[in-house]
Design a protein around this nucleic acid. Structure first.
Lengths: 225, 225
DNA sequence: CTATAATAATAGTAAAACTATCATAAATAA
DNA sequence: TTATTTATGATAGTTTTACTATTATTATAG
């Protein structure tokens, strides 16, 4: 038996549910490929349509514009990651070990074992690193937030924040530390690969070093209080 | 006597030096106003030209495109900030106090005392918070980096990293901690104001709390080694 | 077999992102 | 002083992006 993980998506993110049809699934699959390959700036619905073998108008029946599609992909990613975390930290009692696992999951490049899904998690992970912040770094962030577009990100941050509080109930900044870990897991990766002098990992380019850095950062902050 | 601070800009960032003419200075001044007001996505050279009272073609004589202009503004900002830091930490012997000062400067919204400059540092600071990462989160980051467009950012990071190493010579991640502080000084500010549940400062929205968080983060990391 | 829903095919518009040309005014060099 | 360079202004045009609208075709559910 194969279990298919279904992530409940905010309905205001799309016009027609992309998970409900082959065309929709193709839109998700090929947009991940295209954005991964050429970046979000040069990504257009025209190119996407050509890639899929449909028409521009066809895409517009699913997504209002490419910003909504990016927000959809990021929301999907955060939802997926929260599931990964709850799955992999299940039955772990020690909050410290839990938090270490979380950091590892955040900073590790995803492997694509299951090819059943129409979303390539590994490429999506790279997209989130390079384009993820563009989902909220806009003038519409307030409206988008009112429509709960960032709920999956905020939920994940809350989960991580709670584990931090479990580790160290008196620590004063669990939320901010959580968002710092999440952002830095990605930014240090981007820097390491593109602007290496902003990190201490330019030589080896090993993600294990990012994990070590984040562990050091977090656990010295939480220790001895 | 009035001292005018001149920041040496990378010549590959512009076609004609905007600091060399009134039109050029107007381009800088009004682009800061426009991007601050409506965000980088909706910013166009057409609107900018109308704002200034010149033509689109006129702008293109100074900047190849709006990406280069954004990179110019961010480079200017990092250069300016490095000067602020070297100015305000001059004559401070204790690296700890120095680092505290740095964090304060990074996280504090700039006041515009001097109206002499054609760049409004306070608005520019807000632009860097909301749009700054878009300068490097692109597919061209490699080429841009080869052309040294991010040198001011990397220099600043090196300065902060060196202070960190002064505080704690054995600390293993001075560069990464430096880039973490710099990014988080901005991101936590953006989150606090736009996605407050990603921080612990949603209630008060005081930047002093961001400073306290960063101080805590940094100095527990550096203490006792 | 019919109704209806999704998609394909085609066409079109407005704005964005440029490029090109020429006239004019101001600065400067001969 | 005139001649010449240089910056700007005015105008026009191209290609691409971001969308909207219309109609025809195909698949499928009842």
């Amino acid at each position: 038996m194969k279990l298919q993980l279904q992530i409940k998506m905010n309905e205001a993110l799309f016009l027609r549910n992309p998970e409900s049809s082959d065309l929709g699934k193709n839109i998700l699959k090929h947009s991940v490929q295209l954005i991964y390959k050429s970046g979000f700036e040069s990504f257009t619905f025209k190119k996407l349509a050509e890639d899929i073998g449909t028409t521009e108008a066809g895409i517009y029946r699913y997504f209002e514009n490419k910003h909504k599609l990016l927000v959809y992909l990021t929301a999907w990613y955060w939802g997926w990651l929260e599931f990964q975390i709850s799955f992999h930290t299940n039955n772990i009692n020690s909050p410290t070990i839990k938090l270490k696992k979380v950091i590892q999951l955040l900073a590790t490049v995803v492997e694509n074992d299951e090819q059943n899904s129409y979303i390539d998690e590994s490429s999506l992970h790279q997209i989130i690193i390079a384009e993820g912040s563009k989902a909220y770094l806009t003038k519409q962030v307030g409206e988008d937030n009112k429509q709960q577009f960032f709920k999956p990100y905020k939920d994940l941050c809350a989960v991580v924040g709670n584990i931090i509080s479990e580790c160290s109930p008196k620590y004063k900044y669990p939320r901010s530390l959580a968002s710092t870990i999440i952002e830095m897991a990605h930014f240090q990766n981007f820097f390491m690969n593109n602007l290496p002098s902003l990190t201490d990992f330019g030589k080896t380019k090993e993600e294990s070093e990012i994990i070590a850095f984040l562990n050091d950062l977090v656990f010295t902050s939480l220790k001895k209080r």
